[in-house]
C-alpha cells in the first residue's frame, strides 16, 4: 500500500535557525496519525509543510504518490493536494456567515453554485450545526466555532484532514463530543487524519499512530498504544509519569511508579 503522505529527510530553517531536520515519515491512507511534542518543537510547522503552506528547506514531500514539495519549492499548491486543515486559531472569516464560510471553502472546486450550497449544507448537517448557517463566527460559542471550522474543512471532501491543536481551548464534554464526530467522519468519508497536539490523551482519543518530535528530530514513532506502554521520548515519559495509576493502565502505559517503588 502506498503511503498518502511521505516525508523524506525533511528539514526546515527560519532565518538560519534550524527548526528540525532529517524528518522521514510515512503515513498510510486511512490512518489516524498524531504528531506529538512539546510547544515550539516544530510540529505545527511540519503540518504547514504537509499542507503546502510553506516549503521545506531540504528534503522531499510526497502526497498520494505525487511529489508535492522539494527543497525551497512547492510543486503542488495547497489547494491541489486534496487535503483540508483546521487551524489552531480556526481561521474563520469573521465577516462571512457560517454558511458563507463553509461555501467559500469550495471556491477551489468547479461546482455550480447550487451544488456548492448543497455541499455546504450537508457539511453543516454532518457537524450538527445546520441551524447556525446564518450567524457570524463572532456570535458562536467556542465549540460551535470548532464545528464550523471542521465543516468548512470537510465540505471540500478531502482525502486528508489536518488538525492543528484545534481543541485546546474546549471543555471536556465538548472535546469528547467532537472527538466522536471526527472519528465518525473519518470512517464515513474514509479520511486520513493528521493531528498536531501536545496532549497524548487527545491524540489517543483520535489516533492510532503517532510520532513524537523533540529537539528537531523524531524521537519515537509507532502505534500510539505501544508508544504509551513503552515511552522512550521525554515527552511521553513525563506524560506517563504524571498519569494516575488507573489511567496509565487504561492507556496501556506501564505502572512505572509501582516499579520504582
Amino acid at each position: 500500500m502506498n503511503p498518502i503522505v511521505q516525508l523524506k529527510n525533511i528539514a526546515k530553517e527560519f532565518h538560519a535557525v534550524e527548526i528540525f531536520r532529517d524528518i522521514s515519515l510515512d503515513i498510510q491512507s486511512g490512518e489516524r496519525f498524531a504528531l506529538l511534542g512539546p510547544s515550539g518543537c516544530g510540529k505545527s510547522t511540519l503540518l504547514r509543510l504537509i499542507a503546502g503552506l510553506d516549503a521545506p528547506t531540504n528534503g522531499e514531500l510526497w502526497i498520494d504518490g505525487q511529489a508535492a514539495s522539494l527543497a525551497g519549492r512547492i510543486l503542488l499548491p495547497a489547494h491541489q493536494r486534496g487535503l483540508a486543515m483546521v487551524f489552531q486559531d480556526l481561521a474563520l472569516w469573521p465577516n462571512l456567515t457560517v454558511h458563507q464560510n463553509v461555501e467559500l471553502g469550495l471556491a477551489g472546486t468547479s461546482l455550480a453554485r447550487v451544488q456548492r450550497r448543497e455541499r455546504a449544507e450537508s457539511a453543516l448537517s454532518a457537524c450538527r450545526i445546520a441551524e447556525l448557517g446564518g450567524r457570524k463566527p463572532g456570535e458562536l460559542s467556542g465549540g460551535q466555532q470548532q464545528r464550523v471550522a471542521l465543516a468548512r474543512a470537510l465540505t471540500a471532501e478531502p482525502k486528508l484532514l489536518l488538525l492543528d491543536e484545534p481543541f485546546s481551548s474546549l471543555d471536556i464534554a465538548n472535546k469528547s463530543h467532537l472527538y466522536a464526530v471526527i472519528r465518525r467522519l473519518c470512517t464515513d468519508f474514509h479520511l486520513t487524519l493528521i493531528v498536531v497536539s501536545h496532549d497524548p490523551l487527545e491524540a489517543a482519543a483520535l489516533c492510532s499512530h503517532a510520532a513524537v518530535l523533540e529537539r528537531g528530530r523524531i524521537a519515537e514513532i509507532g502505534g500510539l498504544q505501544a508508544l504509551l506502554r513503552n515511552p522512550v521520548s521525554e515527552t511521553l515519559r513525563e506524560f506517563v509519569a504524571q498519569l494516575p495509576v488507573p489511567t496509565r493502565k487504561e492507556s496501556g502505559a506501564p505502572a512505572r511508579s509501582e516499579e520504582s517503588n
Partner: peptide, 15 residues
C-alpha cells in the same frame, strides 16, 4: 488580520 485567514483561503483554493 490573522495570517491563518489567508492560509485557510489558500488551502480551500479560494482565488
Amino acid at each position: 488580520a490573522p495570517a491563518s485567514w489567508a492560509l485557510a483561503g489558500a488551502l480551500h483554493g479560494v482565488p
